[in-house]
């Protein structure tokens, strides 16, 4: 019998398995347990930040499917997110329907918008595509503000409390579990999608679209599909955002939010499901970390107190992004992979 290395595949089926080792499974199990008990020990501040990260994760996953896997840059992700959020807000306000109608409906509506943008954008590439999607974002913002008898415009619209089969999730700690489950579902389905023919077609389009079409990938169909799936994710995330914030306003969905999502997937790692998660958590939580660290520093060195300015936090955040990418252009998932191989091959790291 041949000597087996730590991960050894004997069939293709084994090669594309999601959880390949028992170690991985147990680590994930442990992680889930930690997540499950967290609201019991942590304060609502932390729980709220994780809630935001969950929402960002789902949206970033969507953008990664479009940009990281299919290679279609989008600077209009916030628009799809907004469509989802407003769909949830308006539908649940007008028709008093439960979440299992609202959320899928907002996902589907956003997906329709995605198709609507995707079809005319088929011919565009690179920065041109980025600009076209960005202008879609501007138009959506305009519509949301102007069409105020439906969206309530600049006054903002409040969203009824999310309730699951009559049980209201009226606090952050309660909605937390709901979000964790949905995020896990979103991660699993994105990872699974990438193992199917559709996922491979996406990657083929990204790597060489002409070659892909020669090999029988229908470019039109798959590009539009990528837009639809990505917007569906954004729509769901938007709906969840509406439920968590319980109040939404056009100012929540600006161009900067689109840039933020792009930042998440680039920092996390393009074309990596895990990367989307890392990036989303990084961008959401790191600023709070920096803040806490700065407060710690001022406690340590009281002389800094007068010099200290909140601008430093944000400057540090920008600097961190730059340094990260200069030293690890593949993003956080690149670092993660390196650490993983390091442990896996230990003590023969090289």
């Amino acid at each position: 019998m041949a000597i087996r290395s730590k991960t050894f595949s004997e069939s293709y089926h084994e090669d594309i398995k999601l959880f390949r080792t028992i170690w991985l499974k147990s680590w994930i199990g442990l992680f889930l347990v930690v997540l499950a008990v967290l609201p019991l020990i942590g304060d609502p501040y932390i729980v709220y930040l994780i809630n935001l990260s969950c929402i960002a994760t789902i949206a970033a996953l969507g953008l990664n499917i479009l940009t990281g896997f299919t290679g279609q840059i989008s600077l209009g992700h916030a628009a799809f997110f907004a469509i989802g959020a407003y769909a949830t807000a308006i539908i649940s306000n007008r028709f008093q329907v439960p979440f299992w109608v609202c959320l899928p409906a907002s996902g589907v509506l956003a997906a329709c918008a995605g198709i609507f943008v995707g079809i005319p954008c088929l011919r565009l590439k690179g920065l041109y595509l980025a600009m076209a999607t960005m202008s879609f974002g501007v138009v959506v913002e305009y519509v949301v503000i102007t069409w105020d008898n439906v969206t309530k415009g600049v006054r903002g619209i409040s969203v009824p409390t999310l309730s699951i089969f009559g049980y209201p999730l009226d606090s952050n700690n309660k909605i937390y579990y709901f979000l964790i489950v949905l995020t896990a579902l979103a991660i699993l389905s994105a990872a699974n999608l990438m193992r199917t023919r559709v996922g491979r077609a996406f990657i083929a389009i990204r790597d060489r679209d002409i070659a892909a079409s020669v090999m029988g990938v229908n470019l039109t169909q798959y590009k539009v599909m990528a837009f639809a799936i990505s917007s569906f994710y954004a729509g769901i995330a938007g709906g969840l955002y509406a439920y968590v914030m319980e109040y939404i306003h056009p100012e929540h969905f600006t161009f900067l939010l689109s840039v933020q999502y792009l930042a998440m997937i680039i920092i996390g790692g393009l074309g990596s499901v895990l990367g989307s998660v890392f990036g989303a958590v990084f961008i959401t939580i790191i600023p709070e970390f920096i803040k806490a660290f700065a407060q710690f520093l001022t406690l340590l060195f009281p002389a800094l107190q007068d010099k200290y300015d909140d601008g430093w936090n944000i400057a540090a955040f920008g600097l961190l992004i730059m340094l990260f990418l200069i030293f690890e252009p593949k993003g956080l998932s690149g670092i993660w992979n390196r650490i993983k191989t390091c442990f896996k091959n230990w003590p023969y790291t090289y």
Partner: peptide, 15 residues
């Protein structure tokens, strides 16, 4: 990644 670096730079410069 390069474009992202410029975004980081913009955040840095603004603050």
């Amino acid at each position: 990644s390069v474009v992202m670096v410029t975004i980081g730079l913009s955040i840095f410069l603004r603050s």
